[in-house]
Design a protein around this nucleic acid. Sequence first.
DNA 1: ATTCTGCTGTTAATTAAATAACAGCGCAAA
DNA 2: TTTGCGCTGTTATTTAATTAACAGCAGAAT
Lengths: 222, 222
Amino acid sequence: MTDSAFFGHLPHKTIERLSQYRRALLLCLDNGQSHIFSHEIAKIQHITSVQVRRDLMLIGYSGTLRKGYNIQELIDLIGSIVDSEEGINVAIVGMGNLGRALIKYISGKRHKLTIVAGFDSNPEKAGTKMNGVDCYSTEKMDEIIREKEIKIGIITVPAVNTREIAARLVEAGIKGILNYTPKPIEVPDGIYLEEYDMITTLEKIAFFVKVSEEEKEPTPEK
Amino acid sequence: MTDSAFFGHLPHKTIERLSQYRRALLLCLDNGQSHIFSHEIAKIQHITSVQVRRDLMLIGYSGTLRKGYNIQELIDLIGSIVDSEEGINVAIVGMGNLGRALIKYISGKRHKLTIVAGFDSNPEKAGTKMNGVDCYSTEKMDEIIREKEIKIGIITVPAVNTREIAARLVEAGIKGILNYTPKPIEVPDGIYLEEYDMITTLEKIAFFVKVSEEEKEPTPEK
DNA sequence: ATTCTGCTGTTAATTAAATAACAGCGCAAA
DNA sequence: TTTGCGCTGTTATTTAATTAACAGCAGAAT
């Protein structure tokens, strides 16, 4: 039995990449490939092969010289590190376009991550199913989260409600929050929070596009 | 006239934070606030006040001692750095839930970033409007992109089509791509690419939730 | 006055992440 | 054989990002 807690000190970026490697590897497996070289993985992820080998070193996996890494083994190992053995239940709060997109996108892709509930303040949506996920009124959030032992909440509600929803998720005992709202929230220690804002990303791209255009223009004298 | 190209060497993370600061500042302005301290901004963004002051130092902005930073001035300065003076046109490829969510979310929020077209392979969507944005058939992508001088493309199509769409965006002369598909793409030099995958983010959260739970359990002997 | 306090702006130190460098090995070619 | 080559695994170096440390100042408290 491996002491999986050992992996708690992996760099955050490595965790992200492991998840990405796995997805790429699953595709390769579907193509009938059985082994893969570090530089092949690297190519797919736009990184260097050193980075890949270094990450694999950190999780203690060894490939075969001149043959590369056994894809199935690597997938399993990554799973044993990033997945929770018993699986983790997830809820989405806000059944708007983004919430629905997430359900379609995530459901069924990872058998250790299950979206078990969607919440929406619109009472008409309560009682319906969206891509196999039961929807409930936001009022029942607390109850359902405890009942279904939901550990992670994804917030996709309008910005004005973000704070309130976050507070209620915390109150209900959630352990991780993914906030897709432009409104930053605060959570107590011990709750893992990740925030992602699409406008920030877009503005960043716009900035670098702008800069690269400016650099191309004839530099105005010394 | 400031030599805005100077700011081309700002750290990527600083650019992201500037965008976030601005959003927070706009809210403060709405609340009637006129000045703000570095530690107040920091609180909102869950970072330290040193980080904030350092970022502002990098863009050459000075606050007033014991009074903080002039919110309006700072918003304007950040705008002059991250925004493109003439504005930048954006297209969304894939009018599914995610594409629609993005339109609702972004449209009108930044007057220097305009979503001017949506594309979808479903011919029924062509000719319609979504939240004020014209939709076109994917076939017309090349034509419309040139015609409207679209610089940035956001890909929200099903994974299988990602590569083809990306290639066509590049071909049409796009300068920046935001890929929300789980399929990594490759682009030539000079095109700024940003990829974001929701499952990776969710798996990362799941990992840290798992790790923190394990750490809480009674450590199995020495 | 003068001491204290709380904030800014900047430099220095630390930490995290990515990259480079290279030793080792086993197949493949000659 | 032996030489070369291509790949792994690891350590060393570099670069990027964050955090710590502190000098300086202006107003408030005494």
